[in-house]
């Protein structure tokens, strides 16, 4: 997926979108690409992960070949107006920027087009090989990537309408643009991811580049080790251990049992996710990434980008 020029990383809140976006960014840099990472809200998650100071609308190179920015509708509007309409910015007139903002809020797709337009514009300018977007969560991404089309249907004429055409050309080209749907192996996250993939396929013409299951607990036992584990849990073996060792290993067994149960749950949810996906149009890539919770932030991004590089090469 890193051979595309624009990737939207999305998923339910809390599944690790920002982490995956940052890690994909690092993986792309490792492949020799010039990368722009963009966060959609100024939550600061991305700057924390990249261990850099607060990001702004103007991209900043934070390490060789890795630039980052934060999206802002007002700035996007300002830039849009100056580049495409060649008109001095409307905010110069006191009070009117607010009204514009309000109307833009009301009309379907206007804000989204400004945002998506800025991203497509970065792709078109070609200063970067790939633009990776730490995108909005599940509820908004469909509206976002479909915005140029929505707007075109709503406002049949006018310059904004014309502008949406080149955006659509970038967004709807699977060679150029893709959505990466991230989920964890929890029930609700998986269900939401399934619904999202379906909505992307039915309501937009934007390709789903990959589905990433994040934080998959590692497999604990092989099949035959499973058998040993269950027999170790039996009374006869337990009492032998107490007798010979002078103490039990029950708590260790319990701790392992809990980890094992969590892993089994995850496996079940992944299986139902796969069978759900099988009902839909095929997805190019299905990635499972290991659980690195309880790891320090810098380590997390390094580890994940390493995993991603290995998976994607």
């Amino acid at each position: 997926m890193l051979d595309r020029q624009l990737l939207f990383i999305t998923g339910k809140g809390g599944v690790g979108k920002s982490t995956i976006a940052a890690s994909l960014g690092r993986a792309a840099v490792a492949q020799g690409k010039r990368v722009l990472l963009c966060e959609m809200d100024a939550k600061g998650a991305l700057s924390n992960l990249l261990q850099t100071s607060e990001l702004s609308f103007t991209p900043r190179e934070i390490s060789p070949n890795l630039s980052a920015m934060t999206m802002n509708t007002q700035d996007a509007l300002r830039e849009y107006v100056s580049i495409f309409l060649k008109t001095p910015f409307v905010a110069a007139i006191p009070g009117l920027a607010g009204i514009f903002d309000f109307v833009a809020d009301a009309a379907p797709g206007v804000k989204e087009v400004l945002v998506v337009g800025k991203l497509c514009y970065e792709v078109r300018k070609g200063n970067y090989d790939i633009v990776i977007v730490d995108a909005e969560s599940t509820g908004h991404i469909v509206a976002q990537v479909a915005a140029p089309t929505t707007l075109r249907n709503f406002v049949p004429l006018g310059p904004l309408n014309e502008q949406t055409l080149w955006m659509t050309a970038i967004l709807e080209d699977p060679q150029k643009t893709g959505v990466v749907v991230v989920t964890t192996c929890q029930e609700m996250a998986v269900n939401e991811a399934l619904e999202l993939v379906e909505a992307l396929q039915t309501k937009t013409k934007v390709d789903t580049a990959a589905v990433v299951v994040n934080r998959v607990p590692t497999e604990i036992f092989t099949k035959s080790q499973e058998l040993v584990f269950s027999q170790l849990n039996q009374a006869a073996t337990k009492s032998l251990i107490v007798q010979k060792l002078g103490s039990s290993i029950d708590l260790s067994l319990q701790a392992t049992g809990l980890a094992r149960a969590r892993r089994n749950l995850a496996t079940q949810h992944i299986a139902s996710f796969r069978s759900g996906l099988a009902q839909l149009k095929p997805i190019n890539q299905f990635l499972l990434l290991p659980d690195f919770s309880y790891q320090p932030t810098d380590f997390l991004v390094n580890k994940l980008s390493g995993e991603l590089e290995a998976e994607l090469s």
């Binding site: 007139i93 514009f100 109307v103 004429l157 904004l160």
Partner: peptide, 25 residues
């Protein structure tokens, strides 16, 4: 109220009449 430039730009950006619909609502 000297809002003319705004309306012009809004109409150019959004298409004619959209603003009026919003106002009506």
């Amino acid at each position: 109220l000297a809002a003319k430039p705004f309306y012009e730009i809004a109409d150019r950006l959004l298409g004619k009449g959209l603003l009026r619909d919003v106002a009506e609502f």
